[in-house]
Simulated scan of single mutants.
Amino acid sequence: MGVFTYEEEVTSTVPAHRLFKAIALESDIIIPKVAPHAIKSSEIIEGDGGPGSIKKITFAEGSQFKYVKHKIEKLDKESFTYGYTIIDGDALAHTLEKISYETKFVPIPDGGCICKGISKYYTKGDFEIKEEDIKVGKEKARGMFKAIEAYLLANPDA
């Protein structure tokens, strides 16, 4: 098994506590609302939403994937840190054991934040991940992030 790690930072004008709340605590409600073309539903199928809970994300009709299940590994409301691991679903195919993500929302002086993300891809056997596949996934994730950010900017009370 190999482990491929990727790091990324994105700056946002949205405060850290609002982005953390939207992405880590209320994603089941917000993501299907801002991206119905990508995500059909998101639901907790085991646990209370905290660490150890399992979520099932069902992708919209026409997506290349049907669903993924992920386990919440870390949910720290004080440090605005959220981590989860994809443990099941057709996005893993026959090449990946799991994919782990951790995001930390760091407040910055102007009122926005820096979102620091680390992704770790655990491959089966000697399979190697192609850089272009990672780029495609990162672009989709960035699009989702920007949709959530736009929603929060357009809805200050959300």
Score class of each variant (00 low, 15 high):
G49C: 09
G49S: 09
G49N: 13
G50D: 10
G50Q: 11
G50F: 03
G50T: 04
G50Y: 06
P51V: 00
P51C: 06
P51N: 13
P51A: 13
G52L: 01
S53D: 02
S53Q: 06
S53M: 02
S53R: 00
S53L: 04
I54M: 07
I54G: 08
K55V: 04
K55G: 00
K55E: 04
K56C: 07
K56H: 06
K56R: 13
I57M: 10
I57H: 09
I57E: 09
F59K: 10
F59I: 11
F59G: 03
A60V: 08
A60G: 11
A60C: 08
G62P: 03
G62C: 05
S63Y: 05
S63Q: 11
Q64W: 08
Q64N: 15
F65H: 14
F65Y: 15
F65V: 12
F65S: 12
Y67M: 11
Y67H: 15
V68W: 00
V68L: 10
K71L: 07
K71R: 11
K71D: 01
I72G: 01
I72K: 00
E73I: 00
E73M: 02
D76M: 04
D76K: 06
D76W: 04
D76T: 04
K77D: 12
K77L: 02
K77E: 13
E78A: 08
E78N: 12
E78M: 02
S79I: 04
S79C: 05
T81D: 05
T81L: 03
Y82D: 12
Y82M: 05
Y82K: 03
Y82L: 04
G83Q: 03
Y84K: 00
Y84R: 00
I86V: 15
I86Y: 05
I86A: 10
I87E: 06
G89M: 08
G89P: 06
G89V: 08
G89F: 09
G89H: 12
D90E: 05
D90W: 02
A91K: 02
L92Y: 14
L92P: 12
L92D: 14
H94Y: 06
T95E: 14
T95H: 15
E97P: 12
E97N: 15
E97I: 12
E97T: 14
K98M: 04
K98W: 01
K98T: 06
K98R: 10
K98V: 05
I99V: 14
I99G: 02
S100H: 05
S100I: 02
Y101L: 13
Y101F: 09
E102I: 13
E102S: 12
E102G: 07
T103G: 09
V106Q: 13
V106C: 07
P107S: 10
P107T: 09
P107N: 10
I108N: 02
P109I: 06
P109N: 09
P109Y: 03
G111F: 09
G112F: 09
G112W: 12
G112R: 10
C113H: 04
C113P: 03
I114V: 14
C115K: 10
C115E: 11
K116P: 10
K116F: 08
K116N: 08
K116I: 13
G117S: 07
I118R: 11
I118L: 13
I118T: 15
S119Y: 03
S119K: 06
K120I: 06
K120Q: 13
K120N: 09
Y121K: 13
Y121E: 13
Y122L: 11
Y122W: 12
Y122A: 13
Y122H: 15
Y122E: 14
Y122Q: 14
T123M: 01
T123L: 01
K124W: 11
K124C: 09
K124N: 08
G125V: 09
